[in-house]
């Protein structure tokens, strides 16, 4: 196996996935700001300022919106787990096991062991790392097919349900990453 060249292009692409993933994993403005600092170069210049502005938000306000959207949603607005979009909808379904298998093949697994592995944030973060690691295009395509396809619908839901700019921006980014062939490798 050959480690990918740490090229700016690869890193930028990975950064976008990692930024998108992290925006769904944490409600800490501080953590997100640090991540954004690191990912800013990867963003189109027109998107940088909106992201910066979106993170000028109090911790409790962000937490309230995070919980409302992802943890205690009004009629399940945009639950972030892939298995929830299967039939019947449930946590820890087949997609959880499939994601876990991917992680384990890389020698990793989610740190929070009682939580589903098919969280959109984990999937996007993992994929970003795959990109950065120089995974073969066939592997990337397989992962996208297995675990990222549902995020197009998810991002639309998120965009519609979000009450703060941060999650509208995250939705736009996710949608671009999973839909746009120019962006997705």
């Amino acid at each position: 196996m050959t480690i990918a060249q740490d090229t700016a292009e690869t890193r930028n692409l990975a950064a976008l996935y990692l930024l998108a993933g992290r925006s769904l994993l944490t409600s800490s403005p501080q953590e997100l700001k640090a991540v954004l600092d690191d990912a800013e170069e990867a963003l189109p210049s027109s998107a940088r300022e909106p992201w910066r502005a979106a993170l000028q938000i109090g911790s409790q306000d962000l937490e309230k919106e995070y919980v409302r959207l992802f943890l205690s949603p009004d009629h399940a607005a945009c639950l972030p787990w892939q298995s929830v979009y299967a039939d019947p909808p449930q946590l820890l379904g087949d997609a959880h096991h499939a994601a876990l298998a991917w992680y384990r093949r890389c020698g990793m697994e989610p740190s929070r062991e009682n939580e589903p592995a098919d969280h959109a944030g984990l999937l996007l973060s993992f994929y970003g790392t795959l990109v950065a690691s120089g995974a073969a295009p066939s592997e990337l395509a397989l992962f996208r097919r297995q675990h990222l396809h549902w995020l197009a619908g998810f991002s639309r839901k998120l965009e519609a349900a979000a009450r703060i700019p941060l999650y509208r921006l995250a939705a736009e980014l996710i949608h671009a990453l999973v839909q746009d062939p120019e962006v997705a490798p």
Binding site: D6, A14, R22, A39, R105, M108, E109, S111, S125, G128
Partner: peptide, 22 residues
């Protein structure tokens, strides 16, 4: 370089696998 990057600091979310078998 990358280890110090907040973007790639995923320790809170991923850890080394305990088992590779299901």
């Amino acid at each position: 370089a990358l280890a110090s990057s907040p973007l790639f600091a995923l320790d809170e979310y991923f850890r080394p696998a305990v088992s590779r078998q299901a």
